[in-house]
C-alpha cells in the first residue's frame, strides 16, 4: 500500500470518528440499530459461564431436588403450624370467655371400642386433672374426664349415652338433660317440658347444676323437637353438637368450676 492510501484511510477513520462522536440524529439511529443487532449476541455470551459438565449438572439437579423436598416439607410444617395456631387462638378465646382456671391438652387417642365414645388426652393427675372435670373445645362442650392416670386422662364424650349433662335452652330457659344416643354420633335433650315452645336452631347451654359443668357452655343447637314416644310426658329434642367430635385435636380441661 502506498503512502497516499494510508493518508486516505486515516482521513476516513478520522471522519467516521468525528461523525459518530457527534450526537446527531443519524449517528443516534445508527447506534440504536447496531445495539439491536448486537444485543442478542451479548445474551449468548451470558451462557458461557454456565456451561458445565453433565455430571456437574446432574449433581446440581440432585441437590436442587433435595432442597425442593426439604422446602416442601418445611412448607407443609409451616401450614400445619399456622392451622394449629388458628385452632389454639380459638381455644384461647374460649379460655378467656370461660373465666375459669383451665388446662390445654392434646387429644392423643380415641376409644378402642365401637360402642363407647371417649378420647384420651395427654394431661393427667400430675397436671392437676381429676375425675369428673368438664372438657371443652373452642366450639363448645366435649365431655368430662372419667379415668385419670399420672400423665393421661380419658374423656367421656357428650356423644356417649353415659355422659349426662344438665342443660338449658338459651331463649325459652327450659331445663332438661343432654346426653348421647346409643350407637349414633349425635345427642339429644330429654325431660323438656312438653308445653315449651322450642325453635329449631335455638342454642342449648349447660345449666350449671350438678357441679361438674359450669353454667353457660354451648352444648349444641336444636335440630328438631317432639313428644318423647316412650314417656309421652316430656319433649325430646335432637341436638346438633357444637363441638366437632371427628376433628378434636386440642381441648381445655376446666380445672375448677366454682
Amino acid at each position: 500500500m502506498k503512502h497516499k492510501d494510508w493518508v486516505i484511510i486515516g482521513l476516513l477513520v478520522l471522519g467516521w470518528v468525528i461523525f459518530l462522536g457527534q450526537p446527531t440524529p443519524v449517528s443516534a439511529r445508527l447506534r440504536n440499530f447496531l445495539t439491536r443487532v448486537t444485543t442478542p449476541l451479548v445474551k449468548v455470551g451470558d451462557w458461557i459461564p454456565t456451561v458445565r459438565s453433565r455430571r456437574q449438572l446432574a449433581q446440581q439437579n440432585d441437590d436442587l431436588r433435595t432442597e425442593v423436598n426439604i422446602l416442601r416439607q418445611r412448607e407443609r410444617t409451616n401450614r400445619e403450624t399456622a392451622r394449629e395456631n388458628r385452632r389454639l387462638e380459638r381455644l384461647l378465646e374460649m379460655k378467656r370467655r370461660l373465666g375459669f382456671p383451665t388446662l390445654a391438652a392434646r387429644v392423643i387417642g380415641r376409644d378402642a371400642s365401637n360402642w363407647w365414645k371417649s378420647i384420651q388426652i395427654d394431661r393427667g393427675e400430675q397436671d392437676g386433672v381429676r375425675e369428673n372435670m368438664a372438657v371443652v373445645s373452642a366450639d363448645g362442650l366435649v365431655g368430662k374426664t372419667i379415668a385419670v392416670s399420672r400423665g393421661e386422662a380419658r374423656v367421656l364424650l357428650l356423644l356417649d349415652p353415659d355422659c349426662k349433662v344438665s342443660a338449658l335452652l338459651e331463649e325459652s330457659r327450659e331445663p332438661g338433660v343432654a346426653q348421647g344416643v346409643t350407637a349414633q354420633t349425635r345427642c339429644e335433650m330429654l325431660y323438656v317440658n312438653r308445653a315449651a315452645k322450642i325453635k329449631p336452631g335455638e342454642a342449648v347451654l349447660t345449666s350449671g347444676l350438678g357441679g361438674i359443668f359450669p353454667k353457660g357452655i354451648h352444648i349444641g343447637s336444636v335440630l328438631e323437637a317432639g313428644l318423647d314416644p316412650q314417656s309421652g310426658m316430656y319433649q325430646r329434642i335432637h341436638l346438633e353438637p357444637a363441638a366437632d367430635f371427628r376433628r378434636l385435636e386440642e381441648v381445655l380441661v376446666i380445672l375448677r368450676a366454682e
Partner: peptide, 10 residues
C-alpha cells in the same frame, strides 16, 4: 387391653 383403651367399664 381393650378396656384400658376405652370408656367401657373396666
Amino acid at each position: 387391653m381393650h378396656d384400658s383403651l376405652s370408656a367401657a367399664p373396666f
